[in-house]
């Protein structure tokens, strides 16, 4: 049994309207010193397989569904 965290974030240069809007709103609430906000997506996936195979499996999931290579980078961490 393995649990993996898959983190999907935007490639460098891809605009992040969700992050920008969140930053603006945080500032409007009075939070000072917010220099950047990035919106990322995390999937926590439990797999019935050894940790060694789980990473490979997670990467395959990113290629086939969870990330679009045009705009996303992904990283898979086994807990």
């Amino acid at each position: 049994m393995a649990v993996i965290d898959i983190r999907i974030d935007l490639k460098k240069g891809v605009a992040d309207p969700e992050g920008n809007n969140t930053k603006k709103t945080l500032e409007s609430l009075g939070f000072k010193g917010v220099t950047d906000v990035k919106a990322v997506k995390v999937f926590e996936i439990s797999l019935d397989m050894p940790a060694g195979e789980a990473k490979k499996c997670g990467e395959d999931m990113c290629v086939k569904l969870l990330a679009n290579p045009v705009i996303h980078n992904f990283s898979v961490t086994v807990r």
């Binding site: 605009a15 679009n68 705009i71």
Partner: peptide
């Protein structure tokens, strides 16, 4: 086999 383009979030968000 994988997407070669994306329809990404509107500029306005």
């Amino acid at each position: 086999p994988v997407p070669t383009a994306a329809l990404y979030t509107n500029d306005s968000g």
